[in-house]
Design a protein around this nucleic acid. Structure first.
Length: 279
DNA sequence: AGTGTATCCTGCAGGC
DNA sequence: TGCCTGCAGGATACAC
């Protein structure tokens, strides 16, 4: 679920609410989301203070005192919900997975219905190694049209698959890959290296503008995504093709089509995004 | 190198 | 009402 704009929205919310709070105790309801043994995880998180909150790709990062990085990948249905006290009634998370209890009596709850998410604590060096395996931040200064064009040039894979590969570019998931390709007028099945310079430039611009617009609207809620206040993202109504098979393309009116690629739906306009010669 | 497939897990919508 | 299938915003391992 959450892609870069949703993770960014969560990060901005957490920055207001958890910085400066100290973790007193960690409770793990479902150890399967951990990438380390339970005891090691609890030891690494306990008695540390949240000093800052950041994001890398789709990962939410809590920088902890004493050289710790708490990295949360939200998977499909993960949420991070901060509370000033003990949650009651209908504010109580329905699928709590990990609870971080703070000194002040409040807590941060990671809940995740499907438990595809992961939670781990690394040291700075461990995080740096992970970071190095990820592609550039699409909204960062290093991600230029030339950088994108060159990176695409080496790959034979369909451009939609390329965009989902976090080692190539960090933070893009199926919704925004599909939306960016529509804005750029590029068919999802086009081979990456066959895009010309103009197409790469359009794709670069489309990626940045769609991600920025989604952040401005607090991300996209299809079903499960919630921000730190439990609220929904408002970008869904602005999606042009994602989840809109059969509806008219907002640019030309042609019915939106759907193709399955690597077992995942790719939506596109057959008129605005011409199919490659050979599929 | 890249792709299809399966896997982790839960819940919902739709067809019958 | 129940049962079945397919589908879902992610990531990874495997065989080919």
């Amino acid at each position: 679920m959450p892609e870069l704009p949703e993770a960014e929205t969560i990060v901005r919310g957490l920055r207001r609410s958890v910085v400066g709070r100290r973790i007193r105790r960690v409770e793990v309801m479902h150890p399967d989301v951990l990438r380390a043994p339970l005891r090691a995880f609890a030891r690494a998180a306990r008695s540390r203070t949240v000093e800052d909150v950041g994001r890398r790709g789709k990962n939410v990062l809590l920088f902890l005192s004493e050289d710790g990085v708490l990295a949360v990948n939200l998977g499909m249905t993960g949420r991070l919900l901060p509370f000033t006290g003990v949650p009651r009634g209908n504010e109580r998370p329905t699928h709590p997975v990990v609870r971080f209890l703070f000194d002040d009596g409040g807590m941060l709850v990671f809940e995740d219905q499907r438990r595809f998410g992961t939670v781990e604590v690394l040291d700075t060096a461990g995080w740096a190694a992970r970071d190095a395996r990820m592609g550039p931040e699409p909204l960062g200064p290093a991600f230029t049209a030339d950088v994108l064009a060159r990176a695409l040039g080496g790959s034979r894979s369909p451009v939609r698959s390329w965009l989902l590969d976090q080692r190539r570019i960090a933070g893009i998931g199926n919704i925004y890959a599909v939306e960016a390709l529509h804005r750029a007028g590029i068919h999802p099945l086009r081979r990456s290296r066959e895009l010309d310079a103009g197409e790469a430039r359009r794709l670069h611009g489309a990626i940045r503008s769609v991600l920025r617009a989604a952040i401005r609207h607090g991300g996209t809620t299809i079903r499960d995504y919630r921000n730190v206040d439990g609220g929904e993202g408002e970008y869904r109504s602005l999606l042009r093709v994602y989840g809109r098979e059969g509806e008219p393309c907002p640019r030309c009116g042609t019915p939106v089509a759907r193709a399955v690629l690597s077992n995942r739906s790719a939506y596109f306009c057959p008129a605005c995004q011409p199919a490659p010669e050979r599929i």
